[in-house]
């Protein structure tokens, strides 16, 4: 991985990414997701691409974009070329790769599922090939009891043993329990991070897994970005989009990222079937998700049974249409 970026990727990074190379760096006025989408659409209609904004003739093109975004603002963003090279160096030094939606290496699944709403930039570390293998997404709260952790870990183990990739958020509690189980079974794991990728990839346990190609971590947020509630909630979209099915092990009622992410799937996005835990004391959150159309988790007891449960033909269709709806996610509030 050498992070030789195409001019399109360079331009998209310049327009949308904060390019954090130091603490206390003055934030740039990067384009919001909506603004970027409009700009990308405009360029496409002109038969141009983002990389054209970097050429000698860019001035005219920038002026043509005036009805969308002030050329002066675009120029300020595009003038950050040297900063970009500094940021790329920082990522590369930590074995972090970066792809844009204009790259062939960008996970196909995200583009198919999210279309224009796929995050324009994705940072990652580890084997990107895992990202196109689908699998089971497991989500839940940070604070759960030991019995539930053991239950979750077992599901992770079943997925791993079934050769089914486990997709999760890498947070404490349910996320990490599911990942632990899958790793234990020798399975592959995708961690969709909302913050601090830079630190996560240097973590010693992660390092061994990344190097064994068992783990890939990805994030649409700058590797140096710290915790942010909005990001933590919004990355749930990516977790579902990268999987064939989602399982909510636990959820608060009408609050928290797990709840919001699941409701968004059930009410709006309908990317994948959403299961909820159907054994034990499930609580108000899970009950309400059931009422919103979540499917009861069939509780497969063997790896084979779990694999079967995830086969598309075998599972019931989620109600509702699969038309993508406008994304909430905004890169500008990083």
């Amino acid at each position: 991985m050498n992070n030789i970026l195409s001019s399109n990727t360079q331009a998209i990074l310049l327009l949308t990414a904060p390019l954090i190379v130091s603490k206390g760096q003055e934030p740039a006025d990067v384009l919001t997701m909506g603004q970027y989408k409009q700009l990308a659409g405009f360029l496409r209609r002109q038969d141009r691409q983002a990389g054209d904004l970097l050429t000698l003739q860019a001035q005219e093109l920038l002026d043509e974009c005036e009805h969308l975004i002030a050329p002066e603002r675009l120029r300020r963003l595009l003038d950050r070329g040297f900063l970009l090279s500094q940021a790329v160096e920082r990522w590369t030094a930590r074995s972090i790769w970066v792809v844009s939606s204009s790259d062939d290496e960008y996970p196909r699944r995200l583009k198919q599922q999210l279309k224009d709403d796929a995050p324009p930039i994705l940072y990652g570390c580890g084997d990107a090939g895992i990202l196109d293998t689908g699998g089971l997404a497991v989500v839940g709260s940070r604070h759960v009891d030991d019995a539930l952790l053991a239950y979750t870990e077992h599901i992770g183990w079943l997925a791993g043993a079934a050769g089914c990739t486990l997709v999760s958020g890498g947070a404490r509690g349910v996320d990490q329990a599911a990942m632990r189980g899958a790793i234990e079974a020798g399975g592959k794991v995708v961690g969709v991070l909302a913050d601090s990728m830079e630190r996560a990839v240097l973590n010693r346990e992660h390092r061994a897994l990344l190097m064994r190609r068992q783990l890939v971590v990805v994030s649409p947020y700058d590797p140096a970005a710290g915790f942010n509630v909005g990001h933590a909630m919004q990355r749930n979209k990516l977790i579902y989009a990268l999987a064939d099915a989602g399982l909510v092990v636990s959820s608060d009622f009408e609050k928290g990222g797990t709840w919001a992410g699941a409701v968004e799937q059930l009410d709006k996005l309908h990317l994948v079937p959403v299961y909820v835990r159907a054994t034990g004391d499930v609580g108000d959150g899970i009950e309400s998700l059931r009422r919103k159309g979540a499917l009861p988790w069939p509780n497969p007891e063997t790896p084979e049974a779990l694999a079967e449960a995830l086969v598309p033909e075998a599972r019931p269709e989620n109600p509702g249409s699969r038309k993508p709806v406008k994304m909430l996610w905004d890169l500008a509030d990083q």
């Binding site: 992070n3 001019s7 970097l54 860019a58 070329g81 970009l84 090279s85 500094q86 160096e89 590369t92």
Partner: peptide, 14 residues
């Protein structure tokens, strides 16, 4: 070597 990498990732508008 660092400079080489920086040059390789530097957009052409610099």
């Amino acid at each position: 070597r660092l400079l080489e990498r920086i040059v390789r990732t530097l957009p052409v508008n610099v």
